[in-house]
Amino acid sequence: MSTVMKIENLEAKIGDKKILKGLNLELEAGKVHAIMGPNGAGKSTLSKTIVGHYDVEVLGGDITYKGKSIVDMDAEERALEGIFLSFQHPVEIPGVNNAYFLRTALNAKRKHEGKEALNAAEFLRLMKSHLEMLGMKSDMISRSLNEGFSGGEKKRNEILQMLILEPEVIILDEIDSGLDIDALRAVSEGINKMKDGKRTFLVITHYSRILDYIEPDYIHVLKDGKVIKTAGPELVAQLEEHGYDAIEEE
């Protein structure tokens, strides 16, 4: 197997609180990894640490991406290198046009890859095709980024960004929370569309529903700042029945 990201003995704190306590996790390239675990276990903290969020201070251990350590890399560089996080709570940015923001982001990435920038018309065509697929209204083009979006609209907008930016490692932090049935299906379809055997997914969730759609290859259980178990998709049913307390650390 080929490993795209390797997390070793990761220790990290937010404020004075140590949250990740020697966490180990290997992401196999092209696979879908699901992370489950109780509230407050450190799942969001892990995803923030991977993308270089300013809240998190790394105390020890390492994260390597394609063989290189990324813990000292700027957040924007990690993004340009292909690491994407769909936020659990996307922030609202008033007055910033959604399409303009997305085109800027895409063109930053294209520039990084030595490609030509897309002009407004080309981009609009691209954006519209994705909007349709995700069942999003066309006013999402001109509305301000996340401003006044419903919970579900915010989540769809995160998926839209993923589709347009085409990242390599995709972290989805509770993308399924608060979605209605149709939205869940649309979001799952978006994710499945991105599955091409090369992209790698890290899907943080509390529910098996989304996993039914996107069919993970691995389930990792994160508890008290550590990954305590890794298994195949069959683990989900067991977790649903017995809860996290029944899991023994391996």
Binding site: A75, F87, T104
Partner: peptide, 15 residues
């Protein structure tokens, strides 16, 4: 807000 800046930086946009 740092939150807003970070969101944009996570999408590859410079500070």
């Amino acid at each position: 807000s740092d939150e807003q800046l970070f969101y944009l930086r996570q999408r590859g946009i410079t500070e």
